[in-house]
Amino acid sequence: MLIQWFPGHMTKTKRMIEDHLKAVDVVAELLDARIPQSSANPMVEELVKGKPRIVILNKADLADPRETDLWISYYKKKGISVVPMTVGNGKNKKKLLSLIRETAEPILSRWRKRGLKNRSVRLMILGIPNVGKSSLINFLAGKASTRTANTPGHTRGKQWVRLSDGLDLLDTPGVLWPKFDDQTAALRLAATGAIAGDVFNPDEVVPVLLSSLAETAPQVLKDVYGIDDVNRDPQLLLEDAGRRRGCLLPGGAIDYDRAEMAVLRDFRNGKLGCITLDPLPKEEP
Results as ranks from 00 to 15, higher is better:
W5F: 09
F6H: 13
M10S: 07
T11D: 14
R15P: 01
I17D: 13
K22H: 14
V26G: 09
V27M: 05
D32H: 05
D32E: 08
S39N: 05
A40H: 12
M43E: 15
M43N: 11
M43T: 05
V48E: 14
K51D: 12
K51S: 07
K51C: 04
R53N: 06
R53P: 08
A60F: 15
L62T: 03
A63N: 06
D64W: 12
P65Y: 14
D69Q: 04
Y75Q: 03
K78E: 06
V83H: 13
P84L: 12
G88K: 11
N89I: 04
G90V: 10
K94A: 11
K94P: 02
L96S: 09
L97Q: 14
L99Y: 15
I100Q: 15
I100F: 15
R101E: 15
T103P: 15
E105K: 14
R112N: 08
K113I: 07
K113H: 12
L123I: 14
M124N: 07
I125M: 04
K133Y: 09
K133G: 02
L136K: 05
F139C: 02
A141C: 00
A141F: 01
G142R: 00
G142T: 00
K143T: 03
R147C: 01
T151Q: 13
P152N: 07
Q159C: 00
W160L: 09
S164C: 00
D165C: 08
G174M: 07
D182A: 00
Q183W: 12
T184W: 08
A185W: 07
A186C: 01
A190I: 03
G193N: 05
G193L: 06
I195D: 10
G197T: 07
F200R: 10
P207V: 00
V208N: 10
V208K: 13
L209W: 09
P218G: 09
L221T: 00
K222R: 14
D223V: 08
I227A: 05
N231G: 05
R232D: 12
D233K: 04
P234Q: 08
E239Q: 08
D240M: 09
A241Q: 06
G242I: 04
P250D: 15
I254R: 06
M261C: 02
V263L: 09
V263T: 07
N269H: 12
K271F: 02
C274V: 04
E283I: 10
E284A: 09
